[in-house]
Write a protein that binds this DNA or RNA. Structure first.
Lengths: 224, 224
DNA sequence: GCATATTTGTCCGTATGTATA
DNA sequence: CTATACATACGGACAAATATG
């Protein structure tokens, strides 16, 4: 198994204030979801602790958090690895997304902030597409879907789904063409946002279900 | 990934192969869920580590897991405390439950095991009521609702909701009368199970929604 | 299949900072 | 305000498991 730590260079400056474990987990989480640390890469305790200037004990606490989030896997006596999602994981994530997102979009009295956030996420995605910043397109896409979940008005549900969507980014990183993955969905996000704004929640739920089916199919095809 | 086909993995082997941190977290989780450690109680590192015969570093790793599950709260430089749920938490949990459980019960091709588990949970609850083991009644109740979620067929969703239901037990422990809390719901669980078995999923979802509304109301009244 | 090196798992001691009586 | 207790974080140690030659 490879032990590629290139995504950790220059990390030291990010670790300045607040709790060391939180900052450590945050720094690793950012590098994982942005793809700097690729799925399958091992994170040896000694090497990572030295690189980031923390003790092994502190690093292990951060690893526990990330393992609990599903971003890394802890293999006993073997070490910590960036999670690699398989086809079953992708199917499972989309089963969860279909259930939660389609139910959330039907919510009766959705928070106005969440509706506004929908529109904002669509705008960010369009801007990212115009600038050909494909990683940002993916970020805006997931931001849109986090806003969909927020329509339900439960911050607990928001937190749960944030983690599921973060996991999903692990699947993005094993694909070759980031453009083909996200670009067609930006338009569909806009259509769903419009339906929500018009109060046509049932239509929005149908559009969302079709969206998720297509996205799952394409992702599964890309994963092989 | 673990495929143990030997059938020889007895308790000793199992204990040896699980990490101290996992067992530690499990022990603490059990004590919190069962109410032996009451909401608001502090868990001083040194005392708990000595009591359970582990090092503080190991204990801190377990604390990180439990904090991530929401069973304890980590207050900077003050320590970890068993979580105390307020009314907003209860409302939030029930918003999540309503969305997820009512959607799950409508699932088209639910796994047969989950349907069987529904019936088994109802039986366990009835037996616990007969034996006046009120804590077990609560356990069986949550087991029933975990089975409801399992109808959706996503083990990721199962894990998310398991944690939400575990959190909910924290609210039970601040109430006085455990009997009045759970007993009336055992019958309603049985009715919901019957509706699911008959394929009347829409009726089951309605009954479930009414159940959750009542339970939330009663819990909020008890919390004051 | 064996011996060795590496890494993880766990523990301890300690220095420092923070909150509280 | 001082004193005390506790959390935070570090570094070193050693056994056990795993990887390597």
């Amino acid at each position: 198994m490879e032990s590629d730590l290139t995504g950790l260079s220059g990390a030291r400056t990010l670790l300045d204030r607040t709790s060391t474990v939180s900052r450590l987990a945050g720094a690793l989480r950012t590098r994982i979801i942005e793809g700097a640390l690729r799925p399958g890469a091992q994170l040896p305790e000694h090497a990572v602790a030295d690189l980031l200037g923390v003790s092994r004990n502190t690093l292990r606490e951060a690893f526990r958090l990330l393992a609990h989030e599903g971003l890394v896997v802890h293999e006993p006596h073997r070490g910590v690895f960036v999670r690699t999602l398989d086809a079953a994981d992708v199917r499972d994530i989309y089963t969860t997304r279909r259930l939660v997102e389609c139910a959330a979009v039907r919510s009766e009295n959705a928070p106005p902030e969440a509706v506004a956030e929908l529109r904002a996420a669509v705008g960010a995605a369009q801007a990212a597409v115009a600038g050909e910043r494909w990683n940002d397109v993916g970020t805006a896409d997931l931001r849109f879907h986090a806003a969909i979940v927020a329509l339900a008005g439960s911050w607990r549900l928001d937190g749960l789904m944030d983690r599921v969507l973060a996991e999903l980014r692990l699947a993005f990183h094993v694909l070759d063409d980031p453009r083909r993955l996200h670009e067609p969905y930006v338009r569909r996000n806009g259509e769903i946002a419009a339906l929500v704004e018009q109060g046509r929640t049932a239509d929005a739920a149908d559009a969302l279900a079709a969206y998720l089916d297509d996205a799952e199919r394409e992702l599964l095809a890309g994963i092989r």
